[in-house]
């Protein structure tokens, strides 16, 4: 199939959630730019980045949304879950409390997303072996008890980062491949949902969708 540089067959939206400081922003930049930033600032609101990977000769464009971690801001990030096909719940293997929050993040995701969302549990900062507070088998056990995929990563030394995203994107692809690409414009329906952060008025939202340029 002939493609331009930025061409892709499928566009999947993924969200990153987890407590503040677990390394969401760095996991994202490691995957999309192969960079690690020791000096990252607190994420306020949202950010996103994209990357294209190949799954079975198909180009999958991942649009990955990075959200603020503070609990009190959850109300603002809720809307970003909508339209997401996948989510990574991150915790820091060197901070037990961030693992204990995973259950709340999972609940939050399930309450605000489509049922068939693919969710992966990610124990980040696996390079901090001497400070480990959450054993690998604890993460694994939680994941299997809740039907989640599981992986440990290190955004710092890059281990398993590509693997994590490839795994979740492949699983989404397998789940969704019946559905064709929606168009060549990136503000296609799923992204449109991303933008409708303030969904308080269903009537208004309906009319917004109708007037969408796609």
């Amino acid at each position: 199939m002939a493609r331009i540089d930025d061409g892709y067959d499928y566009l999947y939206k993924i969200v990153l959630v987890g407590d503040s400081g677990v390394g969401k922003s760095n996991l994202l930049t490691r995957f999309t730019k192969n960079e690690f930033n020791y000096d990252s600032r607190t994420t306020i609101g949202v950010e996103f980045a994209t990357s294209i990977i190949k799954v079975e000769e198909k180009a999958i464009k991942a649009q990955i949304w990075d959200t603020a971690g503070q609990e009190r801001y959850r109300a603002i990030t809720k809307a970003y879950y909508r339209g997401a096909f996948g989510a990574l719940i991150l915790y820091d293997i060197s901070k037990k409390a961030t693992f204990e929050s995973v259950e709340r993040w999972l609940k939050e995701l399930k309450e605000n997303s489509d049922n068939d969302m693919v969710i992966m549990l990610v124990g980040n900062k696996s390079d901090l072996t001497n400070q480990r507070q959450v054993r690998t088998d604890e993460g694994k056990a939680f994941a299997s008890a809740h039907g989640l995929n599981f992986i440990e990563t290190s955004a710092l030394d890059a281990s398993n980062v590509n693997e994590a995203f490839t795994e979740i994107l492949t699983e989404i692809y397998n789940q969704k491949r019946a559905k064709p690409v929606v168009g060549d414009k990136e503000q296609a329906p799923d992204v449109e949902k991303v933008q409708n952060i303030r969904i308080t008025d269903p009537a208004k939202e309906h009319s917004k969708k109708k007037s969408c340029s796609c």
Binding site: I44, G45, I76, Q187, V191, Q195, I197, R198, C212
Partner: peptide, 13 residues
Amino acid sequence: TSLSIRPQLYGTR
């Protein structure tokens, strides 16, 4: 607006 880019996306921060 045609791209669905509104202040709600970038203005919070």
